[in-house]
Amino acid sequence: MDSPTPDAPLPPFEVLVSRHGAAVLRVCRALVGVTDADDVWQETFLAALRSYPSSGGVRNREAWLVTIARNKAVDHHRRNARVPEPVENTGDGTPAGGDDVVRSVEAGDTAGRVWAALGQLPRMQREAVVYHHLAGLRHAEVARLLGNSEAAARRASSEGMKSLRALLVPGGKGLRSGRDD
């Protein structure tokens, strides 16, 4: 992991983009859907670049980026809540009115099915799976993001993966099961 000593010189920002760009994109896709993820990714890295020179005290730069991405995703949802939701029926049986992830699914592709399944997890499980398994953060860092304990973050992540597997079994329980929030 990168855990620089406080006085270590900052690496060129490009290093953060090339090292963490893909993981942050996965987080953005999970939080706001594939379609809007590009915008949120840009907002995340622009904000990070803006405050980068004064970020010398940041111990884990990936966790720092994921935190910014999470805040930008919240802003994004807040903005969208103010404008009328576009009526959009994908026609593939995914539940309407649910997560952005579900709406962004394109029928038929595997990744789309997985994004949709992720979108069906309870929020805590979904975020724990995304930050730990998709972004590679340790459970302790996930706990800081979720505001719970390391043990709770670990549990949410493992329960999330279990629910996800159940959702993805061919001919399995379908997308609605596992939803309890």
Binding site: V17, S18, G21, A22, L25, R26, R29, D38, W41, Q42, F45, L46, L49, T110, A111, V114, W115, V129, H133, L134, M161, L164, R165, L168
Partner: peptide, 21 residues
């Protein structure tokens, strides 16, 4: 394994995003 497909094509996407950034 369950999540592996989510990384498909992300290298090209990240490159495009980095250029736009």
């Amino acid at each position: 394994d369950e999540l592996a497909s989510l990384a498909d094509g992300e290298e090209a996407a990240t490159e495009r995003l980095a250029a736009a950034l």
